[in-house]
Amino acid sequence: MLASLLMLIALLCAGALMPVPYAEMSPGPSYNTLGTHQGECVLQISGQKGCEGTGGHLNMTTVRVTGSEYKMNLVEAVYGWLAHDDVVVPHSTLYPDDKTPDEVSQENAEEFTQSQESAKVAALRALGKKVTSHVIVAVVQRDKPAQGRLHAGDVIKAVDGTAVRGPEDVAKLITKHKPGEKVSFSLVPAKEAAAAERRNQEPTRQKTVTVTTAKAEDGRAIVGIQAGVDYTFPLKIDIKLADVGGPSAGLMFALGIVDRLSPGDLTGGKFIAGTGTIDEKGLVGPIGGIQMKTIGARKEGARYFLTPQENCKAAAADVPDGLTLVKVHTLDGALKALKQIRAGDTAALPKCAKG
């Protein structure tokens, strides 16, 4: 009996320490978009020196996750399920089986870069400043007809003489052809476009490039490019924040830029945090890990949390004491909410409600 008991205990211990296919999310640090990080201003804007002054905060928030190689055991999983500040999720939620860890990191980095560009566009347009968009060659696929003919960064003005207004126009015009036919691109070379952007000018010199289409697996005519959008800004804005990924900082970057380019301050000296994606039109979108972000923000001192409308229900299910969840759907709506906070008119704030 003693031997059997010891064997049972050993099996239970071994089972508890066996790896399980789960990962953990927990509150990460937040960063004041109006302040500094590692000795540098988070927002660096041409013509401005320094970034301290108002004493207020517009903090973007993050979620800390376990690494792709981390092997969680059953005891750790159970502890995470019971803990208030942590969330245990399937490992594939953070690291999909069809992507390598490097691909996940690269995707997060690209989303973070795109969120910065969208934040700049939305903020500057909200301030009435002109931002010009360009359709560009974003990717040239290897071993496809466009390789060596078109280059990443080339500005596409027209396809077969028809002006393009968005990336979708490029694909439509190419697929009007049959495989083997020639398609003509009117474009500004990438180097010319980059030089014009550094001068804050519109690129002007164009050339025509002809590419013979190939046949895709589904029978469509292709040349092997992906079109995207680039912008010419009226001033230079750099966002200096390393080791952060994903698109969820867009809203707070946009608000930080508006604050830095406007008289006075948006916060009224208050500690405000938030999250949310943003597009070029100022539309705020949902993000993941909302409860981790509200917990982290409150721990660092936030009193108000700008919450994407679609995340309100989940966030309101467990609100940290002393934190007011403010529902936002657009950049303009967030700016209006900040005005109410500055004025002390908090009763009128659009707040997240349970259910």
Rank of each mutant, 00 (worst) to 15 (best):
K281Q: 15
Q147S: 15
P29D: 14
V78H: 04
S30P: 08
G289W: 05
E310N: 11
D321F: 09
N108I: 11
Q226G: 11
A297H: 06
E168H: 11
L261M: 02
A347P: 04
D86V: 14
A315F: 01
L331N: 07
Q114N: 15
R260T: 12
I237P: 02
A158P: 11
T212Q: 13
D98S: 11
Y304A: 06
K176R: 15
M7Q: 14
F233E: 06
I257N: 03
D265S: 11
S262T: 06
L173E: 14
T212C: 08
Q48H: 12
D332N: 10
D98K: 10
E111T: 10
E103C: 00
P286T: 10
V137E: 09
Q116R: 12
G180K: 06
L187G: 05
G53H: 02
A254V: 09
N200P: 09
V140M: 00
S105C: 06
K327F: 05
L255K: 03
L6D: 10
N59L: 10
P263Q: 12
G53N: 03
F112I: 04
S186T: 15
Q201W: 05
V244D: 09
C51M: 03
H329C: 13
D98N: 14
G128E: 10
F233Y: 15
L34T: 02
K270G: 10
T275F: 01
G161I: 08
C352P: 03
A122I: 03
V209C: 03
G153A: 03
C352M: 03
F305L: 00
L331R: 01
I278M: 03
R220A: 15
K215L: 07
Q201D: 07
A77T: 14
E197S: 15
L235M: 07
Q38N: 13
E310Y: 12
L12Q: 10
G128P: 04
T294E: 02
A195E: 13
N200G: 09
G250E: 09
L6Q: 11
